[in-house]
Design a protein around this nucleic acid. Structure first.
Lengths: 229, 229
DNA sequence: TAAGTTTGTCATAAAATTGTCACCGGCGGG
DNA sequence: CCCGCCGGTGACAATTTTATGACAAACTTA
């Protein structure tokens, strides 16, 4: 579940956006001021920020600058009432990734968000197929080929696998998996995660009982190893 | 050299566009009225049309309709002074492929033109017939031959099938299907899509209950497989 | 090595998604 | 004007995925 943060002081707009983006399977956090926004940003670590320029207290440009200094890679979409080019330019200079002028159509905004996310995740693994010896992982087609047979991945399986693959050699603890795959308002039982790992192993590993790629780090989490050497 | 046709009554704009697109290696034809535009369209057979909505005589919408009736595949980009959603909607309904609001930046327009051309070039599948074992798909004539019998495709069926065919092996989720086939503005019920898939399957698959080509990826979308191995 | 945790595995329950079919309204052709 | 096709919906069944609990196995630590 993708997390996004909306910083906007108009409650009406917030409400509408919250509904819409929830509907489109985003987990939405909202802030009505710049400082709250920055706090939430640090706390929730969203994948994208929608940011109004006109804010009480710190203005949107400052917030953008601050956010970008925390994580330069995070996509930011600016909202503004003025359609003036100068603002737009300033926004882009400060690192905004896209720009939407009020009044905007919700549909357009959703489309932009998706586009920006896609762009920022562009070079991600989803484009490629990963080959590990006799195993071929293709996230784009939700598919794993092992030996001669092809296994299908379910959405959750794919998400977990993507997370592991995105951070090879790095230990990912359960909290992180839960946070990134389920979002932080849901707490599946610990067994749930084991089960997905189990299923992934039967699909990826030659000998699921002796995994070579999806390794358990007892007491800490799981880790993905690319070279089985 | 790609031919484009610009239909626009403002001479200043025409001049600017002509320069710019020439510079970008397009061969440009221009018309200052709808009827002249349609005549030139038939005569020059351009790859893309840039069309102002406000025209003396026949208005842009009519011209668009006419052009699309001559060649439904031709990309049309609409220009307008009004940024009103309603106009946009009408434009899209009549088959405009993109929409640019005056005053526009030339850069943006060029980018749009290239994007639209790229998109429509991808549809070159439409030229070919695809053969899958005993099944023959002909997007150009909206026709599928399975065994001895020939099935006709409805427009929507064809659009969905084209989308799948354009991205073989790739999982296309429902949102994407909706975006690309219905557009941003409309949300059909989930059942609607199932139904089209159902209809496509009865036309393509040998055993519609056990599809070999149009596969469901539960929770994620649909996927087209070419080789039924 | 034994106790205490953490993880693996399996069966099974719960939830979500998709398949299928019947049916409605609009539109164009005969 | 009637009929049939197309696009669209709703109800319900079928299927698949997700979640959980019980218990075995493995690991840590003392």
């Amino acid at each position: 579940m993708k997390k996004i943060l909306i910083i906007e002081d108009d409650k009406t707009i917030i409400e509408g956006l919250e509904d819409t983006f929830s509907f489109h399977d985003f987990q939405v956090f909202t802030a009505v001021s710049g400082s709250e926004g920055i706090r939430l940003f640090k706390e929730k670590k969203p994948r994208l920020v929608i940011l109004d320029i006109m804010l009480p207290g710190i203005d949107g440009f400052e917030v953008c600058k601050k956010i970008k200094s925390i994580d330069p890679g995070i996509p930011v979409i600016m909202l503004t009432a003025k359609s003036q080019e100068s603002d737009k330019l300033l926004g882009f200079e400060l690192g905004a990734d896209d720009y939407v002028t009020k009044p905007f159509s919700i549909k357009v905004l959703v489309a932009r968000v998706k586009a920006v996310l896609k762009r920022s995740a562009g070079k991600s693994l989803k484009e490629k197929t990963i080959t590990l010896g006799a195993v071929e992982i293709n996230l784009k087609s939700f598919t794993i080929k092992k030996g001669g047979t092809e296994h299908a991945l379910s959405p959750k399986e794919a998400e977990i696998l993507t997370l592991l693959l995105d951070n090879p050699e790095e230990v990912i603890d359960r909290d992180r998996i839960i946070d990134e795959v389920w979002g932080d308002e849901y707490y599946p039982s610990p067994r749930t995660i084991d089960n997905f790992i189990l299923k992934l192993r039967t699909k990826i590993e030659k000998d699921p009982r002796n995994p070579e790629h999806i390794l358990t780090v007892h007491g800490a989490g799981y880790k993905f190893k690319t070279n089985s050497s």
